[in-house]
Nucleic acid binder design. Structure first.
Lengths: 223, 223
DNA sequence: CTCGACGCTCAGCTCTTTCACAGCTCGTCA
DNA sequence: TGACGAGCTGTGAAAGAGCTGAGCGTCGAG
């Protein structure tokens, strides 16, 4: 789960970042409007949180440009309470939802989950591959009805695999989405965590869901 | 698939290289501008990734010279966020697309796929010859709906054959694009791998797709 | 402060993949 | 038809990709 937060107030920004990271998201925080636009265009994010009051470039402008470029990523805008008109303009410009400051962080998390769900088209936001089920809202994972306990990183990895099931995910892609690293670390963390996941998810099951694609990466697949 | 990456930051460069190689591309990495120009002109690449900020020679200069020499290879330029003007100049100078740093590797891969597709004119990037189908995005190959498992090299070879189906490909051409070797090694690896592919793709099928052109090379052809 | 959970590194092991090589087959041409 | 060379293929060695158990540092809870 890769999320971009464009917010100039550092306190608010880092607060949001922290909350999202505790939900196992990989978060990029950006305090500048123009910069934020570039990041959004190049970053393949799953969702964007956008403050409408920014230096250099008004948030509304960013939003319009993103949509003009054909970017479909869900955007949640933040506005001051008083600025009703901004909010309306924002929604018109292609925002998917809004929140007025000040807001409860719980509220923000909940709304982001809704947006993510909308994107995948999965019913009720629940991800399912074969008899493996992941509920992002409760962070609960089960296989064949059996509950599986995962650590934060394991969960993040599994969620990424499930949201992209059937697609081969290369190590650089995984490292970017789950670890938020944008360079090669020459470690085998990913292999290690895939192994952890296998032990918890595939061990003892007839049908394996996590498959290695030698020389390429990994793929989560049912059939 | 042969790709040239001209990028002086070694970390970024090797990260890109790795990502592309996991997509079965043959990658040449070059950290110097002048050298990069030579390579690009001499190398018959399918695509070029060009950082605009390079030592010795500005990336823009390289691009202009390439186009002046009549090279049509698709070029994806990388720019720093702030340098909007550079990017514009780059596009004017003949770049096919751009990406601003930092970018998600996934985004880069996706854009390169688009550039490659543009060349071949294939719809949605899916390659098809007779009932043999290759999906570069998911790295999946099927014949007559039947799934075929390929190793990395086998896949790279098949992709090359399919992107050039109907054309006779000589051994030096194959060796350059799939193995990234530019001299004759006096081996018969290519014959060996063509044989592997035949076993997986043509064996048991009435219509053979891989044909030997004695004294020349190989060709993938339907009917 | 202590303990356990977690994130991660590292090194040794396993098994696939890649490739060299040699003997074979088959097409071509005299 | 026979000789030659191009291409095919079975065998096995070497490399390397991936797996996994051991262990270390950090952080938060008790």
């Amino acid at each position: 789960m890769r999320i971009l937060v464009i917010e100039d107030e550092t306190k608010v920004g880092s607060f949001i970042r922290r909350a999202l990271e505790e939900e196992s998201a990989a978060v990029d925080l950006c305090a500048d409007g123009g910069e934020g636009l570039e990041w959004a265009l190049g970053g393949s994010y799953d969702a964007i949180v956008l403050d409408l009051m920014l230096p250099n470039m008004p948030g509304l402008e960013i939003l319009k440009r993103l949509r003009k470029e054909g970017l479909q990523t869900p955007v949640l805008i933040l506005t001051a309470r008083s600025q009703v008109d901004q909010r309306v303009q924002g929604l018109d410009a292609g925002a998917d939802d809004y929140l007025t400051k000040p807001f409860a962080i719980e509220e923000l998390l909940a709304r982001i989950r809704v947006l993510l769900r909308r994107g995948t088209g999965e019913a009720k936001g629940i991800l399912q591959v074969d008899d493996l089920v992941l509920n992002p809202a409760s962070r609960e994972v089960t296989r064949g009805g059996q509950r599986i306990e995962l650590t934060s990183k394991e969960y993040a990895l599994l969620e990424y695999l499930m949201r992209n099931h059937g697609r081969v995910l290369t190590r650089p892609m995984i490292s970017e989405h789950v670890w938020n690293l944008d360079f090669d670390t020459f470690t085998n963390v990913i292999d290690v965590y895939v192994n952890y996941l296998r032990n918890k998810i595939d061990r003892g099951h007839e049908r394996k869901l996590i498959h290695t694609v030698r020389g390429s990466g990994y793929v989560l697949r049912g059939d």
